[in-house]
Computed example of a mutant assay.
Amino acid sequence: MQSAAQLIAVVRDDRSSLAEAYPWMLALSPADREACAQDLVNAARMSTDQPHPAMAELISWKETATAVAAGLGTIDPAWLGEDAPVERP
């Protein structure tokens, strides 16, 4: 509920940004911050009776920012190989 309240407060106030309400957004690139903000606002507007879509969007972006801050966005997946066989469990 606190996250929802922060989102509503920021959307209603032209002087503040979502990055001020959610400091974890600073781990995202400027383009991703803009996409995150728009996605959060869209999800909040869409969920009239249920907070689930907005909270799912918020958690998804927060986890993305956490991964980026941990350096996980810079790993080259080439080590996986293109045709690596995988045994069935």
Rank of each mutant, 00 (worst) to 15 (best):
L80N: 02
T74L: 09
D14S: 13
E57A: 15
L18H: 11
A31P: 01
Q38T: 05
A44M: 09
S16T: 15
T64P: 00
T66N: 03
R33A: 05
P30W: 13
G71E: 03
P85C: 05
A35I: 00
L26R: 15
C36K: 01
D32Y: 07
Q6T: 12
L18D: 01
V11C: 06
E20P: 01
M46T: 10
I59N: 12
Y22M: 14
E63Q: 15
P85M: 07
H52W: 08
Q2D: 10
A21I: 11
A44I: 01
V41I: 14
H52Y: 11
A21N: 06
T66C: 05
A78N: 07
L26I: 09
D49Y: 13
E57D: 07
A78I: 10
A31G: 07
E87N: 07
R33F: 13
E20S: 14
W79Q: 09
R45V: 02
P30Y: 14
P51T: 06
D49H: 13
E63R: 15
P51M: 11
G81M: 09
I59P: 00
A19E: 12
S16M: 12
M46W: 10
Y22Q: 08
H52K: 10
D14T: 12
V68S: 01
D39C: 04
R12A: 12
L72F: 13
A43Y: 10
K62G: 04
R45L: 14
A19W: 06
T74W: 01
L18T: 07
A21Y: 08
A67N: 09
R33N: 03
I75T: 14
L72D: 06
M25I: 07
V11K: 09
S60A: 15
R12G: 04
I75F: 02
A5F: 08
A43I: 04
A37T: 14
T66P: 00
A84C: 09
V10E: 01
C36G: 04
R15D: 04
T48P: 00
P30T: 11
R88F: 11
A56R: 15
T48C: 05
L58P: 00
R33D: 00
H52E: 12
I59T: 12
G71F: 01
G73V: 07
A43R: 12
P51R: 04
S3R: 03
D83A: 13
D83H: 10
H52D: 08
Q6V: 14
Q2F: 09
A4E: 10
A9M: 04
A44K: 02
D83R: 14
L40P: 01
V86I: 15
A19K: 12
D49N: 13
T48E: 03
T64W: 00
M1N: 11
A19D: 05
R15W: 00
